Amino acid sequence: MFAALTGAGLSAAAGLNAYIPFLMVALVARFSDIIVLPTSLEWIESPWAIGAAALLLVTDVVLDKIPAIDSMNDMIGTAIRPTVGGIVFAATSAVDEQIDQSSLLTAHPWVGAIGGVIIAGFVHTTKAASRPAVNVGTAGVGGPVLSVAEDATAIAMSVIAVFIPLLVIVVLIVMLVASVWLWQRIARLRRRRRTGAYA
């Protein structure tokens, strides 16, 4: 259960920013025994993987704050974020064995990988679809603000997923409620624009 919660939390964070949860897993695995990576994923904690992820994180953080460029960045993220979500979920399979005394994720790492892809893909789709509407509806002002909130959420979710996995359920519910609220706001903005266009 803990491994699944950790994986779900990290995958959700990857849907917002792929590199934050990846770096969290890499650094925690490299400098502690809290996460012990499966042999097939030990490359995550290598210096080159950490360095590349740090560079990509800085690039992503900057590009995601620029209206219009952020949508192109999201298009690239369509492949990257779900993939990283699958990787970080699969990376928690060792936690399953250590904490839960269960071998489900250890024996079937593909279960975690698929779950991670689905969770990260859902979060990414919501993020990517809402950003253009937010940019248009706020004349470009809302995008950078939303991006900062997404980065902060990805950091908080990654920390919670690794260190307090039981809280992941609460954070996922909050994220779901926030997503529904955001979609409702976007729908209202679109209706207002259509009504204004025909007035």
Rank of each mutant, 00 (worst) to 15 (best):
P132L: 04
I119H: 02
A113E: 02
G121D: 00
G116N: 04
S130M: 06
G51K: 01
A149G: 10
T92H: 02
N73M: 08
D100L: 06
P132A: 11
A139Q: 13
I76N: 12
V134R: 07
V145S: 11
M72E: 05
A54Q: 06
L63V: 10
A128T: 01
A94Y: 12
V148R: 14
V123W: 04
V134L: 15
G51P: 07
T125C: 07
D151I: 07
I119V: 11
F122D: 06
E150H: 03
E150K: 08
A94K: 09
P82S: 09
I80S: 03
V148D: 15
D64Q: 03
V145W: 13
I114E: 01
V141G: 04
A79C: 11
L104P: 06
N73G: 09
G85C: 06
A133K: 11
G140R: 11
R81L: 01
D64P: 09
D74L: 07
T125D: 08
G77N: 06
D60K: 09
D70L: 04
A90M: 15
S93D: 07
V58R: 09
A113K: 01
S103C: 03
L146G: 13
G143K: 11
P67T: 02
L105D: 08
S147K: 10
P109D: 02
V111W: 09
A139P: 06
V95Q: 14
G86E: 10
G51C: 06
I66N: 05
R131W: 02
S71Y: 03
L55G: 14
L146I: 05
D151E: 12
A52E: 08
V58H: 08
P109L: 01
A79W: 10
V123P: 00
L63Q: 11
I76T: 12
L56N: 06
S130D: 05
G51Q: 04
V61W: 12
V123D: 00
N135Y: 03
E97D: 13
S103G: 06
